[in-house]
């Protein structure tokens, strides 16, 4: 351990604010980037699933109903 106490560790002999600002920004931005990327992947997955389920459902009703509606089974997947 390079420091005698926890408060000395935080103070870093006066350089604390600089050091901690850097590490704070690093942790904050990296964590945000990771969480955002995870969420985007989940959203993309869910969008795909929803799209396929809708296609399947509408596909069924279309099949049991009139053939003419078949052309409209185009689902927006955004």
């Amino acid at each position: 351990m390079a420091f005698d106490s926890f408060s000395a560790f935080l103070a870093m002999e006066g350089h604390g604010p600089y050091v901690w600002a850097c590490y704070g920004a690093f942790v904050l931005l990296m964590a945000t980037l990771m969480v955002w990327s995870l969420r985007r992947r989940k959203a993309a997955f869910d969008a795909c699933r929803r799209g396929f389920e809708e296609t399947r459902n509408t596909g069924r009703t279309a099949a049991s109903g009139a053939q003419a509606t078949f052309a409209r089974v185009n689902v927006s997947q955004d």
Binding site: M12, E13, H15, Y18, V19, C22, Y23, F26
Partner: peptide, 9 residues
């Protein structure tokens, strides 16, 4: 002194 510890990121 301790300010160099920023190097690790």
């Amino acid at each position: 002194g301790n300010s160099y510890r920023i190097i690790f990121i």
